[in-house]
Amino acid sequence: MTGRPDESSTALEVRDLSVVYPAARGRGPARAVDGVNLRIGKGEIVALIGESGCGKSTLARTLVGLVRPTGGEVLHEGTALDYSARGLKRYRRHTQLVLQDPGGALNPKQNVYDAVALGPRLHGLTEDLPLTVHDALARAGLRPPEQYFDRYPHELSGGQQQRVVIAGVLALNPSVIVADEPVASLDASVRGEILKLILRLRDDLGLSALVVSHDLGLAWNIADRVAVMYLGRVVEQGTVEEVLLRPQHPYTRALLSVVPTGADDWRPTLLAGEPPDPTAIPAGCRFHPRCGRWADADPDTRAAGACDRRTLPVLAPDTSGAACHLLTSSHLENA
């Protein structure tokens, strides 16, 4: 386990974060995020990976202040997020969200210039606004920028729309971006260009980023570190090489198994059971009902592991390891 880093090197962090939605239609409350510790260093890209419904998007929206946590805290450069209207407005100058559907994020009645200028106008940053818009579009890869000023979203390709969305973020000069499935709706030929753009922005501007995705290939191509989320909690984390080349958690291994290797004996691991339900988190390890390692374990191993009885502690934000009873060396700390 590594020591806690100097807060001056931390761009964004969550500590013991939880988001619980009220009960509805006869069901219990939904624990969408249930005790998450996560740190994003300055100039670092962290990939948050998991199936649909695991809490990734809720966590992303909590990081940008769109969802107020039920417990725990969000810290920007060591300072806890202030949820007053003034505090949120100030915070969103520094931390911006990039959504997965650029067509839905852009107003069809608004041209590119006004779309990129919207954020600066809302924050009263109107001095030299044309230059701000011009530079933001150029950084986003739309050159020459002035040729795009009067275009509307329907006149742009999907990749160009996503670049306009990113330009709107860059116009505020943020220190952190949270990208929720930023290339999911784009053609394969365009995805690589957008990922290269995010990497270039990190290198040129020192941006930090959390990139939310179900695509492990994206994590390999863009991230410094990876956090794997299941049913509201991070179950494995570490560097890209640690998590993707030497996965420890059965869930991570199952996710990786669906990526074709080209080997003759390649077979994906099919996850058994029902998809995760945040209103009915099982006792013990929350993954054990779908865990092939648990299903195949002998009775003595099951008894020692107590996967169906003993709750796992929460992963600390700066560990490399996995939360699994059946591992010989899980790096954990008590919640």
Rank of each mutant, 00 (worst) to 15 (best):
274 E>H: 01
233 R>I: 06
275 P>G: 09
240 V>K: 02
271 L>E: 05
285 C>N: 13
232 G>S: 12
263 A>M: 10
264 D>G: 01
265 D>P: 09
276 P>R: 08
237 Q>V: 05
262 G>R: 00
239 T>D: 07
249 H>Q: 03
257 S>Q: 03
257 S>L: 02
265 D>E: 03
248 Q>T: 07
250 P>H: 04
233 R>Y: 00
236 E>W: 06
241 E>G: 13
285 C>V: 12
268 P>T: 01
276 P>C: 14
243 V>Q: 02
256 L>F: 12
270 L>Q: 08
276 P>E: 12
261 T>E: 02
279 T>K: 12
262 G>H: 05
272 A>H: 13
257 S>T: 05
280 A>E: 14
270 L>Y: 07
242 E>P: 10
235 V>Y: 09
273 G>L: 06
234 V>W: 02
267 R>L: 04
246 R>T: 07
251 Y>C: 06
242 E>A: 13
250 P>R: 04
232 G>V: 09
268 P>R: 01
260 P>Q: 12
285 C>Q: 12
253 R>V: 01
241 E>W: 11
238 G>E: 00
244 L>H: 08
233 R>F: 02
232 G>L: 09
280 A>M: 15
252 T>K: 04
287 F>M: 11
234 V>M: 12
234 V>I: 15
242 E>H: 14
279 T>F: 06
264 D>H: 09
258 V>C: 15
279 T>E: 12
263 A>H: 05
273 G>H: 02
265 D>M: 04
266 W>V: 08
252 T>V: 00
255 L>M: 08
285 C>G: 10
255 L>F: 02
240 V>A: 10
238 G>M: 04
249 H>D: 02
255 L>Q: 01
272 A>L: 10
232 G>F: 14
262 G>P: 08
243 V>N: 07
249 H>T: 00
287 F>E: 04
267 R>A: 07
285 C>P: 01
244 L>R: 04
258 V>K: 15
260 P>Y: 10
286 R>W: 07
236 E>D: 06
279 T>L: 13
251 Y>P: 06
265 D>G: 08
243 V>D: 11
274 E>F: 03
255 L>G: 05
230 Y>G: 01
274 E>L: 12
276 P>Q: 13
262 G>S: 09
273 G>M: 03
267 R>M: 01
